[in-house]
Amino acid sequence: MSKEKIVEGGRAWPSANVLLTIGVVVVAIIVFGGVLLSGGDDQPQGSPTASDSVLLNENSHRLTDAGDNAVTVVEFLDFQCPACAGYYRNITADVEQDYGNRITFVVRNFPLDNHSLALPAAQAAEAAGMQGKYAEMYHALYENYEQWAVNEDGDQLSDDEDRARAAFDSFAEEIGLDVDRFHADMASDAVAERIEADKADGEKAQVTGTPTLFINGERFTPSGETFAEVKQQFREKLDAELAQ
């Protein structure tokens, strides 16, 4: 920041402070740069991939199922996250429809701590899954996102759990669930364990935010600014995988 020189007998010396500062910066650059460039931790280069066993297992919920050898999309999501709802509305709902019989689309829970209704919503979806209606509840939660995930003015994420639970009950009735059993399952250990297992797998797959999508085990990293661009990238990637 300031170059200090002590002038003694006409010779200029950088002060010990300047030398030490330069030393720290140089050492830091060498250490960080060196470890990073040497591909530290033996991480694979390029797009990170995650092994299939971490991304999905036989119990994972499938929105569409084209068999084990089909192109597989795995989405880690948080039902209350606005970006996930945006992905649903703009990208994944269409993908599910258009590619339905050709791909296997797996949904995993990754409720984030800063979304207070994400966990109850994940419990609702899992509890519906206990009665074989996971996909129906998944659709109901996103189609009616405004009814429970955001406040009544629609300008902020909601933290009104009673309102959300009432909405989940109405979805449960609409899709024909046994509501008493639905309530019991939502609070059950089995549902809690499923959600925890999904989160643990997400962490192993280095998921840090939502939505995170994997196509055939490779993380989808969009570069587009708009949903339209991301959607196009996503479909191009899917088409490329399907063509192989």
């Binding site: 920041m1 300031s2 002060s15 010990a16 402070n17 300047v18 030490l20 500062t21 720290v24 910066v25 830091a28």
Partner: peptide, 10 residues
């Protein structure tokens, strides 16, 4: 004060 920017860099 003599080592002001060194401490800041650390």
């Amino acid at each position: 004060a003599r080592y002001h920017s060194f401490v800041l860099a650390l």
